[in-house]
Design a protein around this nucleic acid. Sequence first.
RNA 1: GGCGGCAUCGCCAAGUGGUAAGGCAGAGGUCUGCAAAACCUCCAUCUCCGGUUCGAAUCCGGAUGCCGCCUCCA
Length: 478
Amino acid sequence: MTIRFKNTFGGQIEEFVSQDPGIVRMYTCGPTVYDYAHIGNYRAYIFEDLLRRWLEYRGYEVTQVMNLTDVDDKTIRGSRELGIPLNEYTDKYKKAFFEDINTLGIERAEHYPAATEHIYEMVELVKKLLEKGYAYKGDDGCIYYSIDKFPEYGKLSGKRIDKNIAGARIIHDEYEKEQAADFALWKEWDEKDGDVFWETELGKGRPGWHIECSAMSMKYLGETFDIHTGGEDNIFPHHENEIAQSEAATGKPFARYWLHCAHLVVEGKKMSKSLGNYYTLRQLIEMGHDPMAIRYVLIGTHYRQQLNFTFEGLSAAKASLDRLREFKDMLLSATEDTVHMEVSDALAKAKTDFENSMDYDLNISGAMGALFELVRNANKLRDEGKLSAADAKPILEFLKDFHAVTGLLPKEKKVHTDEDVIVRIGDEKMRVEAALSERQKARNEKDWARADEIRDALLSQGWEIRDTPEGPVLKKVT
RNA sequence: GGCGGCAUCGCCAAGUGGUAAGGCAGAGGUCUGCAAAACCUCCAUCUCCGGUUCGAAUCCGGAUGCCGCCUCCA
């Protein structure tokens, strides 16, 4: 088993070897809690979820840190507009974030450090950079990082300061900074900040954005850790700046592997509020979409590939998911204990293909392909009478693994036969189970109108009747 | 202007030089009182032009088209 990842640093697909055997320390850039997160954000968090789940599947003990940015221009502006304290404002969105990740079945990270709770660590780090001469105080009182002092600046993103960074920003240069591309480590308080400030050794003010990730990752993961992830837009300047700050301060390599996920577009266009194609997770749920179908869409495209989110794709995902759920139910209802070699062969191949695909830079499409091939083969064998409960058992084990890695399958069985739910048939009210027998009675009497009336009534109330060779079965429509 | 990415069936999407996975949709079929659901079967030579190679969707050069980053952004 060899796991490989495309490392943004260097741009190559390389073998993954953790710093300490059996342990992976990873830092994942989290949300700025100023609004409900949109599906693009969750694409990134689901990619990170898949990453940690795969590492766990491969036996690693994972320590994941995801920061919560709860102090910046947007959170301050939002809280001031409402006239409420910053923490009251951000708490709402922190809570919403955790509700959302539950909805999507995202595993919890080990730590969710908030920027406002790590001011001390950030101040210490900035002090260190001042002492070492990498930082200076500008005329505006803010403390800046001097990128000229860090010759390797640009090594992650491949950008060269002279060529474009300085050029692109020269217009905005307001002379407080020595170099146009220098970035703020600490921002001096000004009126727009209202009562958001900390009195520290650096003065009265608040941290710059980039410093929190350096300070908090070091605190929870050490000065050098294994994996750092984020959206591709973070490569520059955010992650570039993190490297500059961290490595200048410690003199050690910062993150060893950098993984970035591509953006999501909606119906082929960049998601934006003005185009009307901007969706939060909550909106999609309110529209009645299955959270797992959303998860399926977000996880289903390789993380380095731009994902085109479409409603057509969402219903395709729902259909695929239903097929998997159906497959699981089929396995659960298998009987007898004769063992068939064909089944174990198909399963062994699926498992190998699945694992090899995932090992190769989390190739989820290949992995899904392996699973569906197994679905088809197993169904076929079932049709040929070659799938017993004994054969089904190891496949169910595999589905369990599949679920551990992707989080896509439900635990409960979908077919219900003994429900006490009350349904309406015309003007009558009866138990759903009674309605089912009523229909059977009508069918026996060849009263098709009555039978179909009951069938339609049940369907409109969320119950589907399936006439199987073993008799009718009720299924809840999801 | 600088840096980077992408172009594979109607839609989505794998493909690590050796002869095109998979999903959805569609068509046919099994089952059914009819249906639904389910299941089975069928369904592409990879944008174009050159080159390297015994062999290229895969490597190189060029063309065309699309996209991202360089400013807060997952």
